[in-house]
């Protein structure tokens, strides 16, 4: 009885097989489209289409406020390569990148390691260490403008207190110190961020490894070198990538603190692009600067991906 029931149902499904399969396939495609369409449309319009349009605008001489387009082809890119300010800003982006890697990551690591040390009152330390990252960059920029101020800035005050009057100066008003003052501020803002990344990774290191090392009589520094550091390598690389990509996009702080000045000494690609587009009304050339940022970010990402793949291959 049971067997015959089963047979009839398989026969039925066999005869229906081809049409249901096609229908099921079509329904699956509709499902995929239905689920992905909202995200794809928003992402497609605001990101993919916009990047294409930026390249398109970069081929024109256009103010952005009238309809006088004149087609230049790649002339804007030739102009860019000869534009001293662009090279200065690219140099500043590179300086920021190097300084970020060399200051934020080590500082973040030191903070994270301290959180696991037997220092009392660690909860308070941890809470305060992390606070800078929650402030908006605009607020940070304004706050530090007053700290660095030449007349009533509190940094000069502090230097006076410890007898370093000779160093007192207008930190962001001078070409030689402005970029370093900004870099210090960026470090203040982002070191806490790397601290929490490292902290999360250190939590994941098995306690037994340290216990075994203790039995072997390893000193703290040896434990750090032979256990902590190697196991943290993946997160250090992730952090380095985040820091590199972040450095190429930097804008807010410079805009608030220095506007790229004095005399372009703190100009970044993003601030230069903003100035060309919205202050000088060169939308065509501004697009050229911003599309170049995209190309540079793309090349850097490509290198990172290739490097990652090689590293994984070695392991």
């Amino acid at each position: 009885m049971q067997k015959s029931l089963g047979e009839t149902s398989t026969q039925k499904s066999l005869s229906l097989n081809t049409s249901t399969k096609a229908m099921r396939k079509r329904r699956e495609i509709l499902t995929i489209i239905g689920f992905m369409a909202p995200a794809l449309i928003i992402y497609g319009v605001y990101v993919v289409y916009s990047i294409g349009m930026t390249f398109y605008y970069s081929l024109f001489e256009w103010s952005g406020i009238d309809n006088n387009f004149s087609f230049l082809g790649l002339d804007n890119y030739v102009r860019l390569l000869q534009d001293g300010v662009f090279w200065v800003s690219l140099g500043n982006n590179s300086l920021l990148l190097g300084a970020s890697l060399l200051t934020q990551l080590p500082l973040g690591l030191i903070m994270a390691l301290l959180l696991f040390s037997p220092v009392k009152g660690m909860r308070l330390f941890r809470s305060v260490y992390f606070m800078p990252f929650l402030m908006s960059t605009v607020a940070i920029g304004i706050l530090f403008v007053f700290i660095y101020d030449g007349n009533f800035g509190l940094l000069n005050d502090l230097l006076g207190m410890v007898g370093l009057e000779s160093l007192q100066q207008s930190w962001i008003g001078k070409e030689s110190t402005a970029i370093w003052a900004v870099i210090a501020t960026v470090c203040w803002q982002f070191a806490p961020f790397y601290m929490i990344l490292f902290r999360a990774a250190i939590v994941g290191i098995p306690e037994e490894l340290y216990e075994a090392a203790n039995i072997d009589g390893a000193k703290p520094l040896q434990r750090f070198k032979n256990i902590t550091l190697p196991l943290l390598m993946p997160i250090i690389i992730t952090s380095a990538i985040l820091s590199i990509i972040g450095s190429l996009k930097y804008f807010d702080l410079i805009y608030v603190m220095t506007m790229g000045g004095p005399n372009n000494s703190t100009e970044l690609m993003a601030t230069y692009m903003y100035k060309q587009t919205f202050t000088n009304f060169n939308m065509g050339y501004g697009s050229t600067v911003s599309f170049s940022m995209f190309i540079i970010a793309f090349i850097v990402t490509l290198f990172i991906l290739i490097g990652e793949r090689k590293r994984r291959g070695v392991e």
Partner: peptide, 23 residues
């Protein structure tokens, strides 16, 4: 499609600023 979304993380928002402003 997954890669398309992933690339978005490295794109400098400034590259989209002018078209988004006009849009």
């Amino acid at each position: 499609l997954f890669l398309l979304f992933m690339v978005g993380m490295m794109i400098p928002i400034h590259t989209t600023l002018i078209p988004i402003y006009l849009l």
